[in-house]
């Protein structure tokens, strides 16, 4: 078990390192942001000064070395606009993002799992068809547009919920519903397919033959083994939700990491943008590591594999 933890952790650190480097080279290796930051009216002196300030006048490889050094010492640099360290800024926005992500995830599980179970029980039935259509729809709709339409209907027309900002539980409803559609669709799909796999196995028929009631079978015998892949997808989605909610936060003016990222772009706060990307990758990798380890705990077959 300790070997599993060590090897998985080493793996995660390596992935994070490569991902950060990828982010570095994709963003910085392709061009200098100074022009973008200062705009076209900047004088050559201003350009030179900012270039030196950001360390962009050094060779790329030196910049990269500095970037890695900063990374291992958990120093993500300072924001250009806020005059604060990027890490502080991120930490300040994190609670709002976590709140939104958790709520959306809860909603996704609370609706997606039962929907998947009911669909699996009657494969090809009405519920199954409607559920699979809804799941497909959930994967096809642009989230920010769905958010706009919810605002239009429930905030503007009906006035049930506030349209944006974070004040009170009311304001959480619309963004959380919007954000939950994609994970809900995927959780429903996955629950349905892994449930139907389990339901076709012999031990379920055996349980039926022993005269166990339908719902007992479903919940105790079938859902438990089927929940393993569902846990994985929940983990994956959690990572996505924290960092990928940019458009939804933008639509609802939700003061989380996503809107910090959009603001950073609009104010051309380049170091902050990069820090958020690296932080997003960190969250994703950490959650994956947790899911992997959880898997290892639950399923002994995977433990031996490592």
């Amino acid at each position: 078990m300790i070997r599993l933890i060590l090897s998985k952790t080493a793996n995660a650190v390596l992935t994070l390192l490569i991902a950060s480097s990828l982010a570095f080279f994709l963003a910085r290796g392709s061009g200098s942001p100074v022009r973008e930051i200062l705009g076209d009216s900047a004088t050559p002196e201003q350009v030179a000064q900012l270039t030196a300030e950001l360390g962009l006048d050094k060779p790329l490889i030196v910049q990269y070395g500095q970037f890695l050094l900063d990374l291992v010492s958990f120093d993500l640099g300072d924001s250009l606009r806020y005059g604060q360290s990027n890490l502080e800024l991120i930490a300040g926005r994190l609670p709002a993002s976590i709140e939104l992500a958790l709520f959306a995830l809860l909603l996704a599980v609370a609706v997606g799992v039962p929907l998947g179970i009911i669909a699996a029980m009657r494969e090809g039935g009405v519920v199954d068809r409607i559920a699979s259509m809804l799941a497909l729809l959930g994967q096809s709709v642009p989230l920010f547009w769905l958010g706009l339409m919810l605002i239009l209907l429930f905030a503007v027309r009906l006035g049930w919920f506030p349209a944006g900002q974070n004040d009170g539980i009311d304001s959480l409803v619309l963004p959380a519903v919007t954000l939950s559609t994609l994970p809900m669709a995927q959780i429903a799909r996955l629950t349905r397919s892994s449930m139907s796999e389990v339901l076709h196995e012999g031990f379920i028929s055996a349980a039926r033959a022993r005269g166990l009631a339908g719902w007992r079978i479903i919940l105790i015998h079938a859902f438990r083994p089927a929940s393993l892949p569902v846990v994985t997808i929940v983990g994956l989605q959690a990572g996505m939700l924290l960092s990928g909610a940019v458009t939804v936060e933008y639509v609802f003016a939700w003061p989380g990491l996503g809107s910090l990222a959009t603001q950073a772009v609009q104010t051309r706060d380049f170091p902050l943008v990069q820090s958020i990307v690296v932080f997003g990758a960190l969250v994703f990798v950490l959650i994956n590591l947790a899911v992997d380890l959880l898997y290892g705990l639950v399923d002994p077959r995977i433990r031996e594999d490592a």
């Binding site: 982010a23 963003a27 061009g31 973008e36 990928g244 772009v265 380049f270 943008v273 990069q274 990758a281």
Partner: peptide, 20 residues
Amino acid sequence: EAQLALPFILVAIAIIAANG
């Protein structure tokens, strides 16, 4: 694996921010 670990929209933002 590393590419999949990067949240797409954030990477896109970083690239577009740097390159216009």
